[in-house]
Structures are given as C-alpha cells and as structure tokens.
C-alpha cells in the first residue's frame, strides 16, 4: 500500500486498525463519493464496499440520493469527488463487469424495438464494434427472456408490454450481459405481483452464482424477506451490513427522521427481531 507510513501512524494514534483492504477481492468499492447539483451536495462523502456474492438493498427516504449514488458511482453523471473501483480497477475500464438496470422511466418506450431487440442490446458489448449479432447471440437473448418468463413476448414492441413486463425485459437484458456486479434502480417500482416474484427469483439465482447485486429498494416491509444486506443512505452514508445488524430501528430513525411514522417503525422493529 502506498500510504504504509501514514497507516502505521494512524493505528498508533487511534488504537484501532484500518480495515484490511484487498482491492482485488472487492467487486464494488466506492470511496468519498460526493455529488452536487447547483453547488449543493445531494450526496455527501459516501464510502462503501459491497459484500461479494450478496444481495444488498440500498434504502433511504425520497431524495436520499440512492439513484444518484448508483449513477455517480458508475460515472454516468458528473461527481464532485470520489472514486469507484471494480475488482481493484477504476470503474471506467471495468464497465464490462457491471450490468446496470436503469429506472423504467429512463427510456423512450415508443422506440421501434421488440423485447428480443432490447435483450440483444445487452449482448452488444460481446458482439463488438461493426459486427451484427448472430444466431448464438439470439439464442442467448431468448434464454434470458425465458429466465424471466417473457419468451412468449419476444417479438412484441416494448411499448405494448405492461409495466411489469417491461421491467422483466430489462432484467433479462442484464442477465444476458453476464456481468459480475448488478446494479438495479428500483426494479420493483410499479410492478405486479407476478413480476415481483419473478424478479426475486432471478435475484436469488444471481446470488447463487456468486454475483454481487445492489438494488435500490423502496418498500421497507420486504427488506427482511428479500435481502441479506443493506446500505442505508440519507444524502450521506448512514449504515451498512447484514440485515440483522444494520436494519435497526435506530438506523432507520437516523435515515428517515420524522418521515417514518413511529407505528411503522415499531412494526419494522418487531419484524427484525
């Protein structure tokens, strides 16, 4: 480590060791991320290391900067400071290891593309410049659609699918990308029960395959059931860790403040014990 001397001194000063940090093992490591709009920080000094092979929910109140965190960490929007490393590499050179599923409202649903087209796009990175996707790519895309139960809609224009079906197509696309790290921005928002089930199933399979998955999640009631870890944000880092230890009423109070009704809080506390 390049700051060995400093580290030694710090240990002496503070009496607790700096956490051992082996970059090559960390699928997704963000340090000191700050994002500002109009010279006002919306995300302040967030450092976070995602646990490998785990399913993590990113939670926090509205405007807490959850989506901003994902986008800025990926370098899709400008950041004021901070760096992201993917398996020890700067994120810019490691984007092929990441699959990002944007919020559903982010694309033009009237675009002339079918469900299969959209999934195929996830494979474009493997197809490479200039070349057209071939039969094997189509096969792969169809398999991904199958995994989310959408094979029957392969040739449907995406605008003619229901909200839940659209979400599933996007999920299939990220599966086709075959990445190591999956970042999903509110995949559960506005979907039907069947889709919710399908998404949960896919997330489970991803984790089984030792993928690292981060999901921006809104519904606090289901955090316990779906996820093993959480990252809690409120414009800044609040807490992170396994659900049992980090998803506590105290942390929730910290993140949500008065915005979470006390009865709601009690209910969550009861659940988490």
């Amino acid at each position: 480590m390049r700051m060995g001397g400093q580290k030694a001194r710090l240990v002496a000063q503070q009496g607790e060791p700096v956490s051992a940090y082996n970059p090559d093992d960390n699928p997704f490591h963000v340090s000191g991320l700050t994002v500002a709009y109009h010279n006002k920080p919306v995300l302040w000094n967030v450092s976070y290391t995602a646990p490998k092979g785990q399913l993590t929910a990113i939670i926090g109140p509205n405007g807490a900067g959850k989506s901003t965190f994902l986008k800025a960490a990926l370098g899709l929007i400008p950041r004021l400071s901070g760096e992201t490393q993917v398996f020890g590499q700067p994120v810019k050179t490691a984007l092929n290891k990441i699959a990002y599923v944007p919020q559903r409202s982010a694309v033009d649903w009237d675009f002339p593309a079918t469900a299969l087209d959209v999934v195929l796009m996830g494979l474009y990175g493997k197809v490479g410049w200039f070349r057209w996707p071939g039969k094997s790519h189509r096969q792969k895309a169809k398999k991904a659609l199958q995994a989310v139960g959408m094979e029957a809609f392969a040739n449907r224009q995406i605008g003619q699918l229901s909200g839940g079906q659209q979400q599933r197509v996007f999920l299939a696309r990220s599966l086709a990308q075959d990445a190591e790290v999956y970042l999903m921005d509110e995949p559960f928002s506005g979907v039907d029960a069947a889709t919710e089930k399908a998404i949960v199933e896919v997330l489970r399979q991803l984790v089984e395959a030792d993928k690292t998955v981060l999901v921006v999640h809104h519904d606090l009631e289901t955090v316990n059931d779906y996820y093993s870890n959480i990252l809690m944000l409120n414009g800044q880092y609040i807490a992170s860790g396994p659900v049992e230890t980090a998803f506590t009423a105290q942390n929730l109070q910290k993140a949500y403040g008065g915005r979470l009704a006390s009865t709601q809080l009690e209910g969550l506390k009861a659940k988490s014990c």
Partner: peptide, 17 residues
C-alpha cells in the same frame, strides 16, 4: 468539499487517494 472530505478521511484513519 474536498478539504472537508480530506479532513474527515484523516479523522477516520483512511488513506486519501
């Protein structure tokens, strides 16, 4: 922002990259 963050990083005992 950078000054503040740098100082907080120092206080946390972490390296400044």
């Amino acid at each position: 922002v950078h000054t503040r963050q740098g100082l907080l990083t120092i206080a946390n005992g972490q390296p400044i990259l």
